[in-house]
Amino acid sequence: MNKKENVKKNIIDFSKIVIFLSICGVLLWCITPIFVPKNNTKKSGIKYENARGFYGERHNSIDIFALGNSDLYSAMNPLELWNSHGYTSYVCAEPSQNIFSAYYLLKDIFTCQKPKLVILEVDQLFTRNEADDIDDAFNNILKNKFPLFEYHSRWKNLKTEDFTNKVSYISRVESKGYIYHNKARPNKLGFKYMKNKKNSTITMTTKMYMKKTIELAKNHGADVLLVWYPSATTGTIDRHEAVQKLADQYNVPFIDFNVNQYDTGFNWLTDTRDGGNHLNYNGAKKMTKYLGKYLIENYHLMDHRQDNAYNQWNLDYQSFMKKNKLL
Protein backbone atom coordinates (compact mmCIF):
# COMPACT_ATOMS: atom_id res chain seq x y z
CA MET A 1 0.00 0.00 0.00
CA ASN A 2 1.54 3.34 -1.07
CA LYS A 3 1.49 6.54 0.93
CA LYS A 4 -1.48 8.00 -0.96
CA GLU A 5 -3.58 4.90 -0.40
CA ASN A 6 -2.61 4.85 3.26
CA VAL A 7 -3.73 8.46 3.74
CA LYS A 8 -7.02 7.69 1.97
CA LYS A 9 -7.60 4.67 4.23
CA ASN A 10 -6.92 6.77 7.35
CA ILE A 11 -9.38 9.42 6.18
CA ILE A 12 -12.05 6.77 5.56
CA ASP A 13 -11.45 5.18 8.97
CA PHE A 14 -11.60 8.56 10.69
CA SER A 15 -14.80 9.40 8.82
CA LYS A 16 -16.38 6.14 9.98
CA ILE A 17 -15.54 6.99 13.59
CA VAL A 18 -17.00 10.50 13.23
CA ILE A 19 -20.17 9.12 11.61
CA PHE A 20 -20.52 6.45 14.32
CA LEU A 21 -20.10 8.97 17.12
CA SER A 22 -22.52 11.36 15.43
CA ILE A 23 -25.15 8.62 15.19
CA CYS A 24 -24.61 7.76 18.86
CA GLY A 25 -24.99 11.43 19.78
CA VAL A 26 -28.23 11.79 17.82
CA LEU A 27 -29.62 8.60 19.39
CA LEU A 28 -28.73 9.86 22.88
CA TRP A 29 -30.36 13.20 22.11
CA CYS A 30 -33.54 11.49 20.92
CA ILE A 31 -33.77 8.85 23.63
CA THR A 32 -32.83 11.00 26.64
CA PRO A 33 -36.21 12.85 26.96
CA ILE A 34 -37.96 9.50 27.41
CA PHE A 35 -35.95 8.74 30.54
CA VAL A 36 -36.26 12.19 32.14
CA PRO A 37 -38.80 12.03 35.02
CA LYS A 38 -41.97 13.85 34.12
CA ASN A 39 -42.59 15.13 37.63
CA ASN A 40 -40.25 16.09 40.48
CA THR A 41 -41.33 13.27 42.81
CA LYS A 42 -39.57 10.12 43.97
CA LYS A 43 -42.40 8.08 42.49
CA SER A 44 -41.72 9.67 39.10
CA GLY A 45 -38.04 8.79 39.40
CA ILE A 46 -36.55 12.19 40.25
CA LYS A 47 -33.26 12.11 42.13
CA TYR A 48 -33.49 13.49 45.68
CA GLU A 49 -36.95 15.02 45.44
CA ASN A 50 -36.39 16.87 48.70
CA ALA A 51 -33.72 19.01 47.02
CA ARG A 52 -35.90 19.63 43.97
CA GLY A 53 -39.17 20.75 45.47
CA PHE A 54 -38.34 24.29 44.38
CA TYR A 55 -39.57 23.35 40.90
CA GLY A 56 -43.09 23.30 42.33
CA GLU A 57 -42.83 26.72 43.95
CA ARG A 58 -44.18 29.81 42.25
CA HIS A 59 -41.64 31.17 39.78
CA ASN A 60 -39.29 33.86 41.08
CA SER A 61 -40.73 33.64 44.59
CA ILE A 62 -37.69 32.33 46.52
CA ASP A 63 -35.02 34.83 47.56
CA ILE A 64 -32.44 32.50 49.14
CA PHE A 65 -31.10 29.16 47.95
CA ALA A 66 -28.66 26.98 49.86
CA LEU A 67 -26.64 24.14 48.35
CA GLY A 68 -24.63 21.46 50.14
CA ASN A 69 -24.67 17.97 51.57
CA SER A 70 -26.56 16.33 54.45
CA ASP A 71 -24.97 18.72 56.97
CA LEU A 72 -26.98 21.49 55.33
CA TYR A 73 -30.43 19.85 55.22
CA SER A 74 -29.95 18.98 58.90
CA ALA A 75 -28.96 22.48 60.00
CA MET A 76 -30.93 25.09 58.03
CA ASN A 77 -34.69 25.33 58.39
CA PRO A 78 -36.29 27.67 55.82
CA LEU A 79 -39.63 27.63 57.63
CA GLU A 80 -37.96 29.08 60.73
CA LEU A 81 -36.53 31.87 58.58
CA TRP A 82 -39.99 32.45 57.18
CA ASN A 83 -41.75 32.55 60.53
CA SER A 84 -39.21 34.89 62.11
CA HIS A 85 -38.36 37.18 59.20
CA GLY A 86 -40.63 36.46 56.25
CA TYR A 87 -37.67 35.41 54.08
CA THR A 88 -38.32 32.79 51.42
CA SER A 89 -35.54 30.22 51.16
CA TYR A 90 -34.95 26.69 49.94
CA VAL A 91 -32.38 24.06 50.91
CA CYS A 92 -31.17 22.18 47.82
CA ALA A 93 -29.05 19.68 49.73
CA GLU A 94 -28.31 16.07 48.83
CA PRO A 95 -26.41 13.29 50.60
CA SER A 96 -22.70 13.59 49.70
CA GLN A 97 -23.38 16.46 47.31
CA ASN A 98 -20.19 17.86 45.75
CA ILE A 99 -19.52 21.23 44.15
CA PHE A 100 -19.94 19.75 40.65
CA SER A 101 -23.52 18.64 41.20
CA ALA A 102 -24.16 21.86 43.14
CA TYR A 103 -23.08 23.92 40.13
CA TYR A 104 -25.51 22.21 37.77
CA LEU A 105 -28.29 22.28 40.33
CA LEU A 106 -27.78 26.03 40.64
CA LYS A 107 -28.05 26.34 36.86
CA ASP A 108 -31.43 24.58 37.12
CA ILE A 109 -32.48 26.96 39.88
CA PHE A 110 -31.89 29.97 37.67
CA THR A 111 -34.24 28.57 35.04
CA CYS A 112 -37.22 29.24 37.31
CA GLN A 113 -36.06 31.41 40.22
CA LYS A 114 -34.17 34.67 40.75
CA PRO A 115 -32.60 34.39 44.20
CA LYS A 116 -30.89 37.37 45.76
CA LEU A 117 -28.57 35.18 47.83
CA VAL A 118 -26.91 31.80 47.27
CA ILE A 119 -25.52 30.00 50.31
CA LEU A 120 -22.83 27.36 49.74
CA GLU A 121 -22.26 24.87 52.57
CA VAL A 122 -18.52 24.23 52.30
CA ASP A 123 -18.23 20.75 53.83
CA GLN A 124 -18.75 19.53 50.25
CA LEU A 125 -15.42 21.03 49.16
CA PHE A 126 -13.27 18.35 50.80
CA THR A 127 -13.09 15.44 48.41
CA ARG A 128 -10.79 12.44 48.05
CA ASN A 129 -8.33 13.41 45.31
CA GLU A 130 -7.91 15.19 41.99
CA ALA A 131 -8.51 12.09 39.86
CA ASP A 132 -11.87 11.41 41.51
CA ASP A 133 -12.85 15.05 41.15
CA ILE A 134 -12.07 15.08 37.45
CA ASP A 135 -14.15 11.92 37.07
CA ASP A 136 -17.04 13.45 39.05
CA ALA A 137 -16.86 16.67 37.05
CA PHE A 138 -16.94 14.77 33.75
CA ASN A 139 -19.86 12.62 34.93
CA ASN A 140 -21.83 15.71 35.91
CA ILE A 141 -21.20 17.26 32.49
CA LEU A 142 -22.53 14.11 30.84
CA LYS A 143 -25.56 13.92 33.11
CA ASN A 144 -26.32 17.60 32.49
CA LYS A 145 -26.09 17.26 28.70
CA PHE A 146 -27.66 13.80 28.55
CA PRO A 147 -29.89 13.06 31.59
CA LEU A 148 -30.10 9.50 30.29
CA PHE A 149 -26.84 8.86 32.16
CA GLU A 150 -28.57 9.93 35.39
CA TYR A 151 -31.86 8.13 34.84
CA HIS A 152 -30.94 5.11 32.70
CA SER A 153 -32.24 2.72 35.40
CA ARG A 154 -35.79 4.04 34.82
CA TRP A 155 -36.19 1.78 31.78
CA LYS A 156 -37.92 -0.78 34.03
CA ASN A 157 -40.56 1.73 35.14
CA LEU A 158 -41.29 3.68 31.98
CA LYS A 159 -44.94 4.58 31.45
CA THR A 160 -46.96 5.92 28.55
CA GLU A 161 -46.52 9.53 29.68
CA ASP A 162 -42.74 9.15 29.53
CA PHE A 163 -42.96 9.05 25.73
CA THR A 164 -44.84 12.35 25.50
CA ASN A 165 -41.84 14.48 26.55
CA LYS A 166 -44.22 16.65 28.59
CA VAL A 167 -42.40 17.54 31.82
CA SER A 168 -44.53 19.04 34.59
CA TYR A 169 -42.51 19.65 37.74
CA ILE A 170 -45.28 20.78 40.06
CA SER A 171 -44.68 18.88 43.29
CA ARG A 172 -43.89 21.02 46.34
CA VAL A 173 -41.97 20.06 49.48
CA GLU A 174 -43.55 21.51 52.60
CA SER A 175 -40.29 21.72 54.59
CA LYS A 176 -38.47 23.54 51.74
CA GLY A 177 -35.67 20.99 51.75
CA TYR A 178 -35.04 20.80 55.50
CA ILE A 179 -35.16 17.29 57.00
CA TYR A 180 -36.49 17.15 60.54
CA HIS A 181 -34.90 15.01 63.29
CA ASN A 182 -35.60 15.39 67.00
CA LYS A 183 -33.38 12.58 68.34
CA ALA A 184 -30.43 13.69 70.49
CA ARG A 185 -27.20 11.69 70.73
CA PRO A 186 -24.39 13.82 72.18
CA ASN A 187 -20.84 14.42 71.09
CA LYS A 188 -19.10 14.40 74.47
CA LEU A 189 -15.74 15.55 73.10
CA GLY A 190 -17.11 18.90 71.99
CA PHE A 191 -14.94 20.91 69.60
CA LYS A 192 -11.74 18.94 70.25
CA TYR A 193 -12.13 17.55 66.73
CA MET A 194 -10.89 20.85 65.33
CA LYS A 195 -7.35 19.86 66.34
CA ASN A 196 -7.53 16.66 64.27
CA LYS A 197 -5.28 16.21 61.26
CA LYS A 198 -7.18 15.49 58.05
CA ASN A 199 -6.56 16.16 54.42
CA SER A 200 -7.20 19.88 54.06
CA THR A 201 -6.37 20.13 50.36
CA ILE A 202 -9.06 21.54 48.11
CA THR A 203 -8.33 20.16 44.66
CA MET A 204 -7.84 22.36 41.60
CA THR A 205 -10.96 20.89 40.00
CA THR A 206 -13.05 21.71 43.07
CA LYS A 207 -11.60 25.23 43.19
CA MET A 208 -12.41 25.70 39.51
CA TYR A 209 -16.04 24.66 40.03
CA MET A 210 -16.37 26.71 43.17
CA LYS A 211 -15.25 29.74 41.15
CA LYS A 212 -17.71 28.80 38.36
CA THR A 213 -20.52 28.47 40.92
CA ILE A 214 -19.77 31.83 42.52
CA GLU A 215 -19.54 33.51 39.11
CA LEU A 216 -22.80 31.86 38.00
CA ALA A 217 -24.58 33.28 41.04
CA LYS A 218 -23.10 36.76 40.68
CA ASN A 219 -23.81 36.86 36.95
CA HIS A 220 -27.47 36.33 37.83
CA GLY A 221 -27.40 39.14 40.36
CA ALA A 222 -27.15 36.97 43.50
CA ASP A 223 -24.77 37.45 46.41
CA VAL A 224 -22.86 34.44 47.74
CA LEU A 225 -22.35 33.39 51.35
CA LEU A 226 -20.18 30.46 52.51
CA VAL A 227 -21.31 28.57 55.61
CA TRP A 228 -19.95 25.61 57.53
CA TYR A 229 -22.28 24.15 60.12
CA PRO A 230 -20.86 22.26 63.14
CA SER A 231 -19.43 18.94 61.94
CA ALA A 232 -17.39 16.80 64.31
CA THR A 233 -16.61 14.29 61.56
CA THR A 234 -15.07 16.69 59.05
CA GLY A 235 -14.14 20.02 60.58
CA THR A 236 -10.53 20.97 61.44
CA ILE A 237 -8.57 24.19 61.88
CA ASP A 238 -6.56 23.45 58.73
CA ARG A 239 -9.72 22.99 56.68
CA HIS A 240 -11.20 26.19 58.07
CA GLU A 241 -8.11 28.07 56.99
CA ALA A 242 -8.23 26.50 53.51
CA VAL A 243 -11.82 27.68 53.02
CA GLN A 244 -11.10 31.11 54.52
CA LYS A 245 -8.29 31.55 51.99
CA LEU A 246 -10.72 30.85 49.14
CA ALA A 247 -13.37 33.12 50.64
CA ASP A 248 -10.83 35.95 50.77
CA GLN A 249 -9.71 35.20 47.22
CA TYR A 250 -13.26 35.32 45.84
CA ASN A 251 -14.30 38.17 48.15
CA VAL A 252 -17.25 36.33 49.71
CA PRO A 253 -18.15 36.17 53.43
CA PHE A 254 -17.61 32.93 55.36
CA ILE A 255 -19.41 31.84 58.54
CA ASP A 256 -17.85 28.82 60.25
CA PHE A 257 -19.78 27.57 63.27
CA ASN A 258 -16.93 25.16 64.00
CA VAL A 259 -14.58 27.97 65.06
CA ASN A 260 -17.10 30.48 66.40
CA GLN A 261 -20.57 29.74 67.80
CA TYR A 262 -21.62 33.41 67.55
CA ASP A 263 -23.51 33.31 70.86
CA THR A 264 -25.99 30.81 69.45
CA GLY A 265 -25.90 28.71 72.61
CA PHE A 266 -24.98 25.67 70.50
CA ASN A 267 -24.28 22.62 72.65
CA TRP A 268 -22.82 19.33 71.37
CA LEU A 269 -24.57 17.49 74.22
CA THR A 270 -28.08 18.44 73.09
CA ASP A 271 -27.94 19.64 69.48
CA THR A 272 -26.75 16.64 67.44
CA ARG A 273 -28.73 13.57 66.43
CA ASP A 274 -25.85 11.17 65.77
CA GLY A 275 -22.89 11.99 67.97
CA GLY A 276 -21.59 14.92 65.97
CA ASN A 277 -22.12 14.25 62.27
CA HIS A 278 -25.49 16.00 61.85
CA LEU A 279 -27.55 18.43 63.89
CA ASN A 280 -31.04 17.76 65.22
CA TYR A 281 -34.00 20.15 65.25
CA ASN A 282 -32.73 21.90 68.37
CA GLY A 283 -29.36 22.55 66.74
CA ALA A 284 -30.93 23.63 63.46
CA LYS A 285 -33.16 26.10 65.26
CA LYS A 286 -30.12 27.77 66.83
CA MET A 287 -28.21 27.86 63.54
CA THR A 288 -31.19 29.27 61.65
CA LYS A 289 -31.88 31.89 64.29
CA TYR A 290 -28.35 33.23 63.93
CA LEU A 291 -28.54 33.06 60.14
CA GLY A 292 -31.68 35.18 60.21
CA LYS A 293 -29.94 37.78 62.37
CA TYR A 294 -26.94 37.78 60.03
CA LEU A 295 -29.17 38.25 56.98
CA ILE A 296 -30.92 41.23 58.56
CA GLU A 297 -27.59 42.90 59.29
CA ASN A 298 -25.92 42.23 55.94
CA TYR A 299 -28.56 41.99 53.19
CA HIS A 300 -31.68 43.79 52.03
CA LEU A 301 -34.20 40.97 51.79
CA MET A 302 -37.95 41.32 51.58
CA ASP A 303 -40.27 40.33 54.42
CA HIS A 304 -43.14 38.64 52.59
CA ARG A 305 -45.31 37.71 55.58
CA GLN A 306 -47.94 40.35 54.87
CA ASP A 307 -48.08 39.56 51.15
CA ASN A 308 -51.10 37.40 50.32
CA ALA A 309 -49.22 35.92 47.37
CA TYR A 310 -47.03 34.09 49.93
CA ASN A 311 -49.82 32.80 52.17
CA GLN A 312 -48.91 29.20 51.31
CA TRP A 313 -45.73 29.67 53.35
CA ASN A 314 -47.83 30.36 56.45
CA LEU A 315 -49.83 27.21 55.78
CA ASP A 316 -46.67 25.18 55.26
CA TYR A 317 -45.16 26.46 58.50
CA GLN A 318 -48.28 25.62 60.51
CA SER A 319 -48.56 22.18 58.92
CA PHE A 320 -44.85 21.43 59.53
CA MET A 321 -45.07 22.45 63.19
CA LYS A 322 -48.24 20.44 63.84
CA LYS A 323 -47.00 17.37 61.98
CA ASN A 324 -43.86 17.28 64.09
CA LYS A 325 -45.72 18.19 67.30
CA LEU A 326 -43.80 21.41 67.76
CA LEU A 327 -46.82 23.58 68.56
Rank of each mutant, 00 (worst) to 15 (best):
E57T: 04
K195F: 06
E215M: 09
K183E: 13
L326V: 03
L72K: 02
Y250G: 08
P186E: 11
D223C: 03
R305N: 00
N60V: 00
E121N: 05
M1A: 13
L105V: 03
N129L: 06
E241K: 11
T41M: 09
K16R: 13
D307C: 11
H300P: 00
W228L: 06
T41N: 11
I34M: 11
N187P: 02
A184E: 14
R58C: 01
C24I: 15
Q244F: 05
G177H: 01
S70D: 09
I179E: 05
V224P: 03
N40D: 09
K286H: 07
N157S: 15
K212N: 07
I64G: 00
I46R: 11
E5W: 14
L326S: 03
T205S: 13
P33H: 12
W29G: 11
N219S: 13
A222R: 04
F14V: 07
A309R: 14
M321T: 15
K156V: 08
N298I: 00
K192H: 10
G177D: 00
P37H: 08
Y193P: 10
F100T: 04
S44M: 09
T270A: 05
V243K: 10
I237F: 05
W29R: 12
N282C: 06
Y229I: 11
A247G: 05
C30H: 08
V122R: 02
W268K: 04
F126T: 04
I170A: 13
Y290N: 08
N308K: 14
I237V: 09
D123P: 00
R58A: 05
S15R: 07
L67D: 00
E49G: 14
I170H: 15
A309G: 05
N251D: 12
L291T: 04
A217P: 11
K325N: 14
T160G: 10
H278Q: 09
E130T: 03
V227A: 03
H300V: 11
S44N: 12
K245D: 13
N139A: 14
G275F: 09
C30Q: 13
D162C: 03
Q124V: 08
G283Q: 09
K143E: 10
V173C: 05
K212G: 02
L81Y: 01
I34Q: 10
Y104K: 06
W313V: 04
G283L: 10
K114Q: 15
N314F: 10
D162R: 04
W29A: 13
V118A: 00
N2Y: 10
L125F: 15
T206S: 15
M287D: 00
F320L: 10
L72T: 06
K289M: 05
Y180L: 02
P253V: 01
P78W: 00
